[in-house]
Nucleic acid binder design. Structure first.
Lengths: 327, 327
DNA sequence: TACGAAAGTGGAATCGATTCCATATCGAAT
DNA sequence: ATTCGATATGGAATCGATTCCACTTTCGTA
């Protein structure tokens, strides 16, 4: 590796001069600039980020913590994040928790020791310990997907969107709607969406049956089994709302294997739009949270913080409903 | 930020002693260890990666260069990569080229200036300039998806798998198979797969018609238009092989919009298995390159190199065919 | 002609770690 | 009693940059 000292020596200047030239601050004569540029080109010199960031406390790296990259939702968010980071000359250090909550905290620490300039967390919970760790952090942390106390965050309109979808299903004529949710340690997906489901049924004076609800853990498999549980009851629902697309895939698989027709025998709706779901039968009716835009939005908020903006902001992301023929 | 100097001062030892304790090399008395541990716990001290890597020339970070993260193929590979990296306490710096070739070279440089310990490149071409840049790199670079001269790489069995799929289609009774490919600057996907298609037709004494071939650029849209081009000819094929799943989605969209039935009017086969494609009609017949395993495999090769193994290895990844009802 | 500001440059300290080397203590073996 | 190896510790150099400061030269203007 060639270093700034090599460049200085070869160009017959001091390393202060090289640095001044590279950073375009201070005075450097035309001739010196040319000699330096020439040597840099010849050697292919690249400044060491480690050394630079030791001095400047800036790495140009943003840490991203997410549950699992190979889901359509997450990878779209990452696309959005990456877009804004690239515009601002930041790189992305990516970590996956695989839904182990303790890893979120561990990664916040780890990323800081890696001297990232900021952290974007795709949130799955708002546990006390996590909130605390975020407060303690000495770099800005922004959160997407949960309303995190005391932290700049963007959350999805979980309640509103779910309520609207359930209403829509009722308008379509469904009267016995079942629900596949997730555990309640996820406030956004676990609590808000379920509450919206329950409240909307009530509002329309529809009865609520405990056996119409089953839970999964975000995986396809768990969606399959939740659907199975629901359909194994003595009476069967005429529709199902699944809180995540991944679980909806599992639910559909169960329905298909057991020869239920969608939407004649049972209607299905979910959140999250898949690349494929538009093109293949049945076209899923879903709530599209426009994850890519959410990714760019949360990253812009982080950029604001990196540029010195201090106040915490809370935003709600927008969404749209995509109508397919699964209802 | 607390530094090693703070720890040393608070624990009443020199910073050499703290370092020795942290790295478990050299002698440190029991009492000193305890005092140091206590102070570290109290302060929440984390060593600065920048400083460490400036001294040790190791960052514990691996750079990953890929075309686009929000594709099923890429995100599955990343999953595999991440798994092995995590096992080995490495983090991942992720970059996207969005299929701009010059960015591959730019990122190789950039990642080096960020002092990554190694680079994993999901290859899209084997251009001279790229090969050169890889040779020049002073960290190990491994490549997935292309057979890169002089570099450790794993490539997919593009020729064999494609030939086998075309044969399978012929066995199924299709006699007029069309082909949606990509530009030939991608040796693996652009050249090998097309050659396999042509050779297999010839081998079965089937005629080849130039108008049965169209090209896309990996995007859904381009698959749509390629399919459109093919179906707008005076005679129509009875099947199509699409070289990537993303383009296959576009092709299917075209077929669906124009009321062709799959597989009655036209059969379709592709590579790459989507989470969804198994569950929704029609179930796609595809070549599954098992991207996640490919990701773990290439990462293990990189780990070997990081541990001092010098020789370059060339491996071919395995695959399997998944039969659906799209043929 | 003189003087102060602008232009140009290098020296040295610094960031936060690691690591080599010198030094000191102590117990065991000769 | 002396010596030697093991244990324990701190000092100082170093990694590759940035940045402050001091110093010199140049130049326009009073």
């Amino acid at each position: 590796m060639t270093t700034i000292n090599d460049i200085a020596r070869l160009a017959n200047v001091s390393r202060s001069t090289v640095s001044r030239h590279l950073n375009k601050n201070g005075y450097v004569s035309q001739e010196a600039q040319e000699r330096i540029d020439k040597v840099i080109k010849e050697t292919g010199y690249l400044p060491s980020q480690s050394a630079q960031s030791l001095r400047t406390k800036k790495t140009g790296v943003v840490g991203v913590i997410l549950p699992k990259i190979s889901t359509e939702t997450a990878s779209r968010v990452v696309d959005g994040i990456n877009q804004v980071l690239q515009e601002n000359d930041y790189q992305m250090l990516l970590t996956q928790t695989l839904l182990q909550k303790e890893k979120e905290i561990a990664f916040i620490k780890l990323l800081q020791s890696r001297n990232v300039d900021g952290i974007i967390l795709l949130g799955t919970n708002t546990d006390e310990a996590l909130v605390e760790e975020i407060q303690k952090a000495d770099v800005p942390v922004v959160v997407l997907g949960q309303e995190m106390p005391g932290t700049t965050s963007i959350h999805y309109p979980d309640y509103k969107a779910t309520a609207e979808m359930i209403s829509y299903m009722i308008d379509k004529g469904y009267r016995d709607i079942s629900f596949i949710g997730v555990a309640e340690d996820d406030p956004a997906v676990g609590i808000m969406r379920k509450e919206a489901y329950l409240a909307t049924l009530k509002q329309h004076n529809l009865p609520f049956l405990a056996e119409r609800i089953a839970y999964g853990d975000f995986s396809i498999d768990s969606g399959y089994h939740a659907m199975e549980t629901i359909m194994n009851q003595t009476t069967k629902p005429d529709a199902v709302f699944v809180v995540t697309d991944n679980m909806a895939v599992g639910a559909m698989q169960y329905l298909k294997e057991n020869h239920y027709h969608i939407p004649e025998d049972i209607g299905i709706a979910t959140t999250g739009v898949s690349r494929l779901s538009k093109y293949i039968e049945p076209v899923l009716t879903t709530i599209d949270f426009r994850n890519e835009e959410a990714g760019t939005a949360i990253t812009r908020l982080l950029m604001e913080q990196l540029n010195g903006y201090k106040k915490t902001k809370k935003l709600t992301h927008t969404y749209r409903r995509l109508s397919g023929n699964s209802l």
